[in-house]
Amino acid sequence: MEVNKDEALRCLLIAKNHLASGNKAGALKFTNKSIGLYPTDQAKAFLAQVQTATSSSSSSTAKSTGANVHPSRQSSTSSTTTSTASSTEKKHTPEQAKAVKTILSCGTDYYKVLSLTKSCTEVEIKKSYRKLALQFHPDKNGAPGADEAFKLISKAFTVLSDPQKRAVHDAGGGDPEMRSSSASSTRQYRQYGGGGGMTEEMTAEDLFDLFFGGGGMRQQQYRRQQFRHPFFTATRQQQARQHQHQHQSPLAGWVQALPILVLLLYAVVSALFSQESTPLYQFQPSTDYSQARKTLDLKIPYYVNPSAFTPVANENYKLRRVERQVENEYINGLNIHCQNERRQRSFRMTQARGSVFGFGYDKAKYEQARKMPMKSCDEMKKLGYNPDYIY
């Protein structure tokens, strides 16, 4: 896998140092480890050199001691060495290794991972996943990095097959689950009493008992402290007064039903004005939105429903307001895609740059990443907007 290339070169350097100091066993060990991480021609050539040096030293030792080794033992020893060297690397074809590198280079662009476009259907997503899953399964593909490629394909299918995760991915790119983890942790912190109050008196053991249902004296002591807190004392007093008032007042039932009546009234009003929530325009044509229009200032194309848009088109101030909304939404979308393009270019340049010490530097890939097309950013510049400004 391309990510392990720097570590493979480091192991090869250690192996060369071992061979120079006379430690042939250590040199053989780190050479095999380098090939296992990332097979290179340099490492394979050095492995042959180490094996030659090891066999020559063993033969010279046998001659110096005067031991006569049977030819069958010599052949079994050489076959064992050959099988050990070949077992460090699974069998695979160059096409499989190239396909694995292509999948891993896609990063978090899940459409590119599954070889699909943003307009793909759910059936196409499932079909592409079945095909790639069989092709890159570690039992079918022995190339280095096939396991990581298989996991990336499964991750892409998980995101694109979920409409909500797919919408988040289309809006900002990347892994939507990674971006939502911080928001969920904040909600959990608030839900379980973060931010002061009686939780400042709780220990780590108390939190463990609270989350995982632990019993014992500690939990009982926490409950006693909890119900002695002024907040719970006031709450119990308020509940007692409400209970007493309910028994005294005959209208208590109507008071309890009032929130339900308010919700029902809100649902009825929302249903009456539901027609106003229908969008006036789209950026893609459809059966209902078949009439193509362009904004007056920036010439942004959009599509409307002819019958529904006629009252807006007949009044100039309404038309100008809708077109400003179209332009703002279009520019915001371009800005999101522009930021995503910049992140992809930075990621590819970092990969091509290699490690801090220069290992793994690929000049061709670096120049290709630096000259990557930035369609959304260029479109914003043509429209007179600065991509560096967050709209």
Score class of each variant (00 low, 15 high):
Thr108Pro: 00
Asn32Ile: 10
Cys338Trp: 10
Arg130Gly: 09
Leu19Cys: 12
Lys165Tyr: 10
Tyr330Arg: 07
Gly253Cys: 05
Ser270Gln: 15
Met380Ala: 06
Ser86Asn: 02
Asn340Asp: 15
Ser355Leu: 05
Tyr389Ala: 03
Met178Glu: 09
Gln256Asp: 15
Ala171Pro: 02
Gly196Pro: 08
Tyr361Ala: 09
Tyr192Lys: 14
Gln42Leu: 11
Glu367Asn: 08
Arg190Tyr: 10
Thr65Phe: 03
His229Phe: 15
Val123Pro: 03
Leu264Trp: 11
Gly142Lys: 10
Asp362Met: 07
Cys106Gln: 14
Ser57Asp: 10
Asn68Cys: 00
Ile331Asn: 05
Gly26Ile: 05
Met372Tyr: 11
Met380Trp: 04
Asp288Trp: 02
Val356Ala: 13
Gly215Ile: 05
Thr287Phe: 06
Ser376Gln: 06
Lys165Ile: 04
Gln96Asn: 01
Gly174Met: 11
Lys127His: 13
Ala292Gln: 14
His70Val: 03
Tyr281Trp: 15
Lys98Arg: 12
Val326Gln: 04
Gly193Met: 07
Ala352Thr: 04
Gln344Asn: 07
Gln244Asp: 10
Phe347Gly: 11
Asp175Cys: 10
Ala271Ile: 11
Ala204Asp: 15
Gly66Ile: 00
Ser180Lys: 08
Gln344Glu: 04
Leu28Thr: 12
Gln49Arg: 15
Glu89Arg: 01
Gly253Trp: 13
Gly384Glu: 11
Phe136Cys: 13
Thr61Gln: 03
Glu200Gln: 11
Lys126Cys: 03
Cys106Ser: 10
Pro373Leu: 12
Lys140Thr: 14
Glu379Pro: 00
Val326Pro: 02
Phe30Tyr: 12
Phe273Arg: 06
Ala167Met: 11
Arg223Phe: 06
Phe273Asp: 12
Ala8Met: 05
Ala369Ile: 03
Thr93Gly: 00
Ser64Asn: 08
Thr295Ala: 00
Ser57Cys: 02
Val50Ala: 09
Pro250Gly: 04
Pro259Leu: 11
Lys126Pro: 01
Thr117Asp: 14
Ser21Asn: 12
Tyr302Gln: 01
Phe231Val: 13
Asn314Thr: 09
Gln368Pro: 00
Pro176Ile: 12
Gly213Lys: 12
Leu383Thr: 07
Pro94Met: 02
Gly333Ala: 08
Ala171Val: 09
Leu152Val: 04
Cys338Gln: 13
